[in-house]
Structure formats: C-alpha cells, structure tokens
Design a protein around this nucleic acid. Structure first.
Lengths: 132, 132
DNA sequence: ATTGTTGCAAAAATTTTGCATTATC
DNA sequence: GATAATGCAAAATTTTTGCAACAAT
C-alpha cells in the first residue's frame, strides 16, 4: 500500500461519507463539504473516494442515474433503490447469507469477494406523493 | 404505451442482446452489429435500449467501469461480476427467493419491483492468468 | 529535500438530445 | 401525409488526469 500523508480534506471526505445513511455520490460529498471547505475541489473528492475503495474503507453500492453511490458501512447488507427518487436505503443490518451461491461459485472456480443484494422499487415517500 | 412502428434495427438490437450471455453494454451491441448494419448509429442503440427498459423486455444488471450492462433474460437470477476483467456471468437459473426481505420491505411501505443479487470477485479465467 | 496532496482546467468517456432526413403506416 | 425511427453531431454528465502549487514528513 502506498504511503499516505495526513490530509484534513481526506478526513473530512471520509467523515462526510460515514456520517450519512444516504449512500452518497461524489457530488453529494462535495456539495456537503464545500460550504465548510471552500477550497475543496471535486477532483479531490474523486481521488480520495478512489483511495478509500482501494483500502476497502468504503463499498460501492450501485449506480443510480449514472452516478456511483457509496457506503461507509462495509459490512454486507442489502439495499433498496427507489426507481422514482433515486434514494438508496439500508435493508436489514446483518449479512444476507441464506440462499447463497458462494459455495457453488467456489466450486466453479470463481473467487467470491463480496455479495450485493439490491431491491428496486418505489419508496414510501414516493408512493405517498404518487410520483410513480 | 406509445405507438411503435416496425424497425429492422430495433429487431437487430434486441436479437443481439438476447443472443449473448455476455450481459452487453450499449457499445458492445453497437460494435457487434455495425459490420452487418453499416448505417447503424450509437444513438439508435441507446434509444432502443431505453425503449426495451420501459417495456420491461430487458433488465439492467449493473454498471462495470462506468458502463451499464444489460440482460435480455428478465427472469430474476443472480450475477457474478469479475473485478478484474469486468465480465458478467449468470449464476443459477432460478430466482433467489430465500432470505428475502421483500415482505419486510412491504411492511415498511416499500413497493418492491425487483431484486438483484450480485457477487463480486475474480472469475476463473483471471485467476488462471493471475491477473488479479 | 522529498514525496504526497490538491486546485484547476482540460480531457475522457458514457449517455442524451436536437434536428433534418428517412422509413413505416 | 402523418408520425415514428434514425444518422449525425453537438451537448450534457460523470469521472479521470496533467501539471504547477502547496503541504506533510
């Protein structure tokens, strides 16, 4: 692993990611921090998110409308993606290990590193507003 | 549903998607068809893929390296995404209905429309080549 | 001093769109 | 003829990158 120096911006970016359940995009993190860190640039957010991925400190959950959504909670847990507003919700808190093809995949020669379960549909908010 | 005219290109695009297990991207479909349909344009591929999505004739599986990957097989089944080469494989043939949070989500007010199970890891090919 | 980090803007890359032309009905 | 589909190129978006300036060790 490459050498890392301390960086207040890196810390701020990581904290922003971990302080929300919104499964943010890079742009979301940038917009969140920009008021407090006026000289922050979007490139820095992308660069640090790339580092966090390498280090396994965050997980990519999915892409919504072309934007990658990440999660500071790296423990495997299912997500619900609203097809209407694009919000991403946590579902359950523990790993979803039943009905697992991991062993079959191993027998077939695949090295499984992670498993994602994504539900798609309409969230309660959008159902209420009849936006669908 | 909007009125649709016959279109040989639309047919070709749909057939290309259904004739492969590669879970293709729009670009893949374009490159596949271009030699046989020289006046095909990428915009047409995107426009028709958008139509197929609306009609539910294809499913979006995931995004790999910024490219959306689709599947002409709309029956729910898990997929394996290789973190190394980006190939997407089918896993199992039937729906993965155990360990399902669908009922919990319904009780919570979410309308579940579909469920995706994605495994990430290294495929046998890349393991063999030690590319990881 | 050396090496890591960042801002900025340009570049890549994917996807969408406007508009004139062509094909289908 | 009316409307849908397409080619083409431009535009819109997200993400990456080159480089000079700055910060951390």
């Amino acid at each position: 692993m490459a050498k890392r120096n301390y960086s207040s911006k890196r810390n701020a970016i990581y904290n922003a990611i971990c302080s929300t359940h919104s499964h943010p995009s890079a742009r979301w993190v940038y917009d969140k921090l920009k008021p407090d860190v006026p000289d922050l640039s979007l490139g820095t957010v992308y660069r640090n998110i790339a580092l966090f991925k390498e280090e396994g400190k965050i997980q990519v959950v999915c892409s919504v409308n072309g934007e990658e959504r990440i999660d500071g909670n790296t423990s495997p847990h299912p997500h619900f993606v609203c097809n209407c507003c694009g919000n991403v919700y946590d579902v359950g808190t523990e790993s979803d290990n039943n009905s697992d093809y991991s062993s079959e995949l191993s027998e077939m020669g695949f090295a499984v590193q992670s498993k994602y379960v994504l539900y798609y549909g309409i969230c309660p908010e959008c159902l209420k507003k009849n936006l669908h």
